[in-house]
Simulated assay, not measured.
Amino acid sequence: MIDPVEESLIRAYVEAYNRFDIEGMLATLADGVHFEHHAGGALAVATDGKAEFEKLARVGAAMFASRRQTLVSLEEQEGRVAATLDFHGEIAEDIPEGPRAGTVIEMRGTSAFGFDDGRIALVIDRA
């Protein structure tokens, strides 16, 4: 069974993400949080600590005119909580050698969350 405090932290993190509320996201995180984003089976980016996470979160938020993660399911796996999430986002500006402004991205991904001392200490996103 998933710890209700951990579920609450995940839901608060996702809700803050959807509101582009970087401060709200940071409030759920441990100071030494480790973040990884994997795309196409490869590690695309990783950060250690709140300061690095915040920089990446601000860059990521600026890429989207709108974005929304919808929590599909949560399950306990190997001492972590695995979340299945649907993502819908619209690119804000043309990305060099990437999608153009207005491009809509929809996908299903997973995020593994680890916890320490009542905060999220690990986020591993896979798209």
Rank of each mutant, 00 (worst) to 15 (best):
M1E: 09
D3I: 03
D3Y: 02
P4Q: 09
E6C: 11
E6T: 09
E7P: 05
S8K: 15
S8R: 15
S8V: 11
L9M: 01
L9I: 00
L9V: 03
I10T: 07
I10H: 07
I10V: 11
A12K: 13
Y13L: 13
V14P: 08
V14T: 12
E15D: 15
N18Q: 11
R19I: 09
F20N: 13
G24M: 06
G24H: 06
T28A: 11
L29S: 08
L29D: 04
D31I: 01
G32E: 15
V33R: 05
H34V: 12
H34F: 08
E36A: 12
H37K: 14
H38S: 08
A42K: 12
L43N: 03
A44W: 08
V45I: 10
V45H: 05
V45P: 01
A46T: 11
A46L: 02
A46F: 04
G49K: 00
G49A: 02
K50V: 03
E52K: 01
F53E: 05
A57W: 04
R58I: 02
V59K: 10
G60M: 07
G60A: 06
A61I: 01
A61W: 03
A61P: 05
A61M: 01
M63K: 07
M63P: 01
F64K: 03
A65I: 00
A65H: 09
R67F: 05
R67T: 04
R67I: 03
R68E: 15
R68H: 07
R68W: 02
R68V: 04
Q69S: 11
Q69M: 13
T70L: 12
T70E: 14
L71E: 11
L74E: 01
L74K: 08
E75G: 08
E76C: 06
E76G: 12
Q77R: 15
Q77K: 15
E78R: 15
E78A: 15
R80G: 04
R80H: 13
V81N: 06
V81I: 15
A82K: 15
A82C: 15
A82R: 15
T84K: 11
T84Q: 13
T84N: 12
T84H: 10
T84R: 15
D86V: 04
D86T: 10
F87C: 13
F87G: 05
F87K: 09
H88S: 14
H88Q: 14
G89N: 06
G89S: 03
I91K: 07
I91D: 06
E93F: 12
D94F: 02
D94Y: 00
D94V: 01
I95F: 08
P99C: 05
G102K: 07
T103H: 11
V104T: 09
I105Q: 08
E106V: 04
R108T: 13
R108C: 06
G109R: 02
T110L: 12
A112M: 14
A112N: 13
D117N: 08
R119I: 09
R119Q: 14
I120G: 01
I120T: 00
A121D: 07
L122R: 09
L122A: 02
I124R: 15
R126W: 04
A127W: 10
